[in-house]
Structure formats: C-alpha cells, structure tokens
Design a protein around this nucleic acid. Structure first.
Lengths: 190, 190
DNA sequence: ACTATCATCCTATCAGTGCTAGAGTTTCTA
DNA sequence: TAGAAACTCTAGCACTGATAGGATGATAGT
C-alpha cells in the first residue's frame, strides 16, 4: 500500500515535471522546439519513458497542457470579473484574457491552435471550455442564446492572436479594450 | 531571347505547379502533410528542384501561398462590399471573409497562424495586409484612428478560427454575423 | 533466504522530415 | 563542334516521433 503510493508519487512527480518542462520550453521557443528527446533530457530519463506517461506521445502532452490552461484561464477571468458589471466587467475580463494569452503563448496555442479536439475530444475539455464560456457570458451579461458571447469570445481570441503576431498596434491596446467595452456593454441600439 | 523566355516560361509554369500542389494538399490534409518529397513527386521532379525555386524551402512556399491569399481575400471582401454601407456592408464583408477562411483553410492558416513575418517580413505582405485592412475599415465606416477596425478584424479572425475548430455552433453562424452588423454598425451609444 | 515475477528503463532502430553537397547530364553559346 | 553554363539527380546529413526487445532492478511467495 505504502509502496504503491510511493511508486505512484514518483510517477506523479515525473508526470508533473514532464508537463512543466514542456510548458516552459514551449513558452520560450514554441511547440516545434518541444521534442521528445529534449523533454526526456529535461527530466533526466530517456525518450521511451515519456510514452509510459503519455501513450499518445507529444499530442497527448500538449492536450494535458491545454487542459491545465483552460482551468487557469477560466480562473483568471473569474477573478478579474469579481462582482463587476457592465463596461467595467467586460474590460476587466478582456484584460485578464489577453494577459493570459500574452504570458502563456504556448499554453494558449495548445488550447486553440492545435487540432486537439479531433483526436482527443474528451469530456474534460468540453466541460472546462464551457466553464470559460460561462464566465465570458456573465461578463457581458448575455441573457440571450449565447450568440453575443460567441462573438465577444471570438473578438478576444482574434485580438490575442493578432496582437501576439504583431499585427495590431501594441500601443493601442487599451483603446481596443475600451472599444470592446463600449461595443459589447449595453444592448445594441434597436 | 526567345530561348530565354521559353526557359523562363517553363520555370514559371513549374513555380505555379508547386504552389498549386502545396495549396491543394494543405487544404486537404493540413500543412503538416505538405512535405518537400510529396511536393516534388507532385510536380514530377526530385526534392532539390524545389530549392531552386524557393531557396527558403517550405517556409518560403508557405509565404508565397500566403501572399496570394492576401490578394484573394482582399478582392473577395471588396467585391462583397460593393457600394453597400452600414449594417449591410458589414454583414456582406463578414460573410465574404468567413467564407474565404472556410474554403481555403490552409491558405488562411499560412496567412496568419504561421510565424511568417518574423523571418520574411517583406514589404509585399505589409502592403497587401494594409489593403485588406482598408477594405474592412471602409466596411464599418471607420473615421477614427483604426481602433474599431482592429477590433472588427479581430472578431472576424476569431470567428474564422473558432468556427473551423468546431468551437462555435455552426447553425448559429448567421446570428453571429447579424450580431457583428449590429455591434459595429453605428457609433456606439454615447 | 532464495527464487519467480513483474515493473521499469535503456539501447538500438525504424520511417519520415527539411535540407544540401557534389556528380552527371543536358542545353546553350561562341 | 568545343567549351561553358544551366539543370537535375543521387546520396547523404542531422533531425523528428515512435517502437521493439533486452537488461536491470524491485517485489512477492514459499
């Protein structure tokens, strides 16, 4: 029993170290730089050990990182939202969302860019995704069928990617966020 | 002279065939499936021939596809815009933009996802990008400093990606477009 | 305490990737 | 027609993700 836990503990520890190493390297140099050999080096083992933890290989590692990401992003947005309402709520959530994308570009990439869903469409991702979606819906006070939230989310997603790609004027960031607040705050005219 | 043109012609022809093959394969199976060996097979030559046309290798091929894409997307948006104004203009451009992304996913991916700019920041991409941006600005009647256009563009970009990733309810597409029209049409309240 | 079993890990290897050097052939030029 | 230039292929490099199979170690049963 105690033996089993000790073993399990070692395994879990390594599990964590793999994910941490992947995340760190990916945030620094992109997912292309995350190779199984480098990852194995980082945790002090050889390549095949990774496949004991993640049979799906690199894809499964990215999925795991993405899952963590959904939880973190949702929490960050919720914290920013607090009890705010209206424009302030929207702007706060937008800042939180965009900050997350900027600080953890690789995690964000794993969450959305990678065609994860096709192969690993798990219930976990779905439920975590929904939790994030709900946070956004609350921020803009969406009472409808979710259409406005979808558009708002898309705007945030687009801003996140385009800002990081250098396609938006960095110094205008606060203007864009204010614009989001104004456009998505009240019900539209008529 | 005539000889030179004949040679040039053959070269240009092959150039086109390479890009066409890359585009076709990428649209079908994603850019990961576009390998230099497969591309060489497709045009009936061996691998190194590609590097005669595109010294930068696969990246340069993607860049060329992306450049074509910017021209096409801008033209498609302009055509959809016509002389429309207000909400109808916005919705028409949005449909054109999203259709492009859906019909040519790989081209769109090459245009935005890939970190092309870093290595190949050419004036061509910049000017073509600006032309597209201007079309969007015209659609929403942006008289300001371009902030609204940036946000509008980001929304389109996000919708394009999230729809294709299956993260948006496909059957609600027209609602989202209508929402865009309403939110970005008039000047915001106050 | 000894042995059989099992988990663990590493070495070696595979097929496939982007890319390049250098030899060989064809084509053009003088 | 001889020399030069352009062209294309073969062969190979250093990588990648992934897997098979043997060696090593810890565990458990008698």
């Amino acid at each position: 029993m105690a033996e089993q836990t000790a073993r399990q503990q070692r395994s879990d520890e390594r599990h964590r170290r793999i994910l941490a190493a992947a995340r760190k390297r990916a945030d620094a140099d992109g997912w292309a730089a995350v190779t199984t050999r480098h990852l194995a080096d980082a945790i002090g083992y050889t390549q095949p050990v990774l496949y004991g933890h993640f049979p799906g290989g690199k894809s499964e590692i990215m999925l795991a990182v993405a899952l963590e990401g959904f939880v973190d992003l949702t929490r960050q947005c919720r914290a920013a939202l607090g009890r705010k309402r209206g424009r302030r709520a929207i702007e706060a959530v937008a800042v939180a969302y965009l900050d997350f994308g900027r600080e953890h570009p690789a995690v964000y990439e794993a969450m959305f860019q990678q065609p994860i869903d096709a192969r690993f469409a798990s219930d976990d991702t779905e439920s975590e995704l929904r939790a994030g979606f709900d946070a956004l819906a609350e921020a803009i006070g969406d009472n409808g069928d979710g259409t406005v939230t979808e558009v708002f989310w898309a705007a945030l997603h687009g801003l996140s990617l385009l800002e990081r790609a250098g396609r938006m004027r960095a110094e205008h960031r606060s203007y864009r966020i204010a614009e989001l607040g104004v456009r998505f705050a009240a019900d539209p005219p008529q």
